[in-house]
Amino acid sequence: MSAETSSSSAISDVEGVSLYDVDHPAPVIEPPRKRTGKTPKGSRTNFEMYAWLFMRLSGIVLVVLVIGHLLIQLVLDGGVSKIGFAFVAGRWASPFWQVWDLAMLWLAMLHGANGLRTVINDYAERDNTRFWLKMLLYTATVFTVLLGTLVIFTFDPNIR
């Protein structure tokens, strides 16, 4: 290949005789974002790609879960007027709706937390501010997910 290109390629015509051939290869330029031993720990994985993928996949599932939830809670059978302890007890008597609500809780909280993480990264310019805002976000997220999960699993229709 180099034998041909050195004499007749467009590059040679424009830039004169090539300095490189098979015996004198061009120096290798390191890809600017190649991962090395010096790469910070945070960027050695594909975390951001998986987060991006998770937003799309969880989003599609959430469209079904959340719009179904809105139909049941706000539209069908009298809308919001029917909601009360008895209504919740009736729904959570079925494992189907327990799983529905559990999936919705986890996916929505993780989807929302990752979205807000992106927003914080975009607008909080000072390192300290960014760090503490994200710590606050993660704390609130873990607390809310655990609380919601506990409520679904330990629900007692005969609490009184």
Binding site: V88, A113, G148, L150, V151
Partner: peptide
């Protein structure tokens, strides 16, 4: 997205009152 996320916090808390 941000508005929905803030509502979600409140909504999990109010639902937790069933316990």
């Amino acid at each position: 997205g941000v508005l929905i996320f803030f509502f979600l916090f409140v909504h999990v808390l109010d639902t937790a009152l069933v316990r």
